[in-house]
């Protein structure tokens, strides 16, 4: 039974691979979709479905039921697509403990189309329209320290989780990705629904994260990676003691 199924899925992979090659050709040959196609929802869904079949269905299944490599996408919502694709995590290059950030494969329009398609499958959280990072900075800081810093560190520099998993650094993430992460709870990250952190609160958090990772100008000089006392200790030995030993050698040297 199992072997039959695996043989079938083997065929399926071959077929899909062929479809992918063809699809890629079509994608490159076809003119780029215009930006205004996203305004028409049904067109966006259709375009998104094409993109899905070409780039995602290998793992997530032709009918979104999930597959060998990927989970079902029914009900994960547009946010999950925005997070995964816009941060370059999807499409996945190879299996790993955790999907790493990579170069982004799709442009913004394509991502919106993919998101519209996945959203059409079974609903789920979506990003609000309008600016996402003009919230209350101080509230955002407090919420960040309560909900986020325990994994992502006080300055969003990231941190270790169990067994080689990690909470990534937040600097490369833009407001959309941060927002989408909170909504969709990718991989081991908890999910923060809108009932739990209201859009205003999410906006505050996004604002604060963007502040500490991008607009923050460290007033005290080099930030040493925002990793806290460990790089400070390294610096005091490598730079402090190191330079001073060279100085003592100079003072002690005989002409």
């Amino acid at each position: 039974m199992t072997s039959t199924r695996s043989r079938i899925s083997g065929y399926a992979v071959v077929v899909l691979a062929l479809a992918l090659v063809g699809g890629l050709y079509t994608a490159f040959a076809a003119p780029k979709p215009k930006a205004d196609t996203g305004t028409n929802q049904s067109i966006a869904v259709k375009e998104g479905r094409q993109l899905y079949l070409q780039g995602c269905s290998t793992c997530h299944g032709l009918s979104n039921q999930g597959g060998a490599g990927g989970p079902s996408l029914i009900g994960v919502g547009a946010s999950a697509v925005v997070f995964q694709v816009e941060s370059g995590r999807m499409p996945l290059a190879s299996a790993a403990a955790q999907a790493p950030r990579k170069a982004v494969k799709y442009d913004r329009t394509q991502i919106d189309q993919l998101a519209a398609y996945v959203q059409s499958l079974g609903g789920g959280p979506t990003l609000p329209s309008g600016p996402l990072d003009d919230g209350n900075l101080a509230l955002g800081g407090d919420l960040f320290r309560t909900n986020c810093s325990s994994c992502h560190n006080f300055a969003g520099a990231g941190g270790a989780l169990t067994r080689a998993k990690y909470a990534p650094a937040l600097k490369p993430a833009d407001a959309r990705v941060i927002w989408a992460a909170m909504q969709s709870g990718p991989e081991n990250m908890p999910r923060f629904s809108d009932n739990q952190l209201t859009p205003d609160e999410k906006k505050a958090i996004t604002t604060y994260v963007r502040f500490i990772t991008n607009q923050n100008k460290d007033p005290g000089g080099a930030a040493l990676g925002h990793y806290g006392p460990i790089p400070e200790g390294l610096v005091v030995f490598l730079v402090g003691i190191g330079v001073l030993i060279i100085v003592t050698l100079w003072i002690g040297a005989r002409a």
Partner: peptide
């Protein structure tokens, strides 16, 4: 950046 002490908060990599 650490923020004021709050017994319910913590930062990853506290050293």
């Amino acid at each position: 950046l650490y923020g004021p002490y709050d017994p319910s908060q913590v930062s990853a990599g506290s050293q």
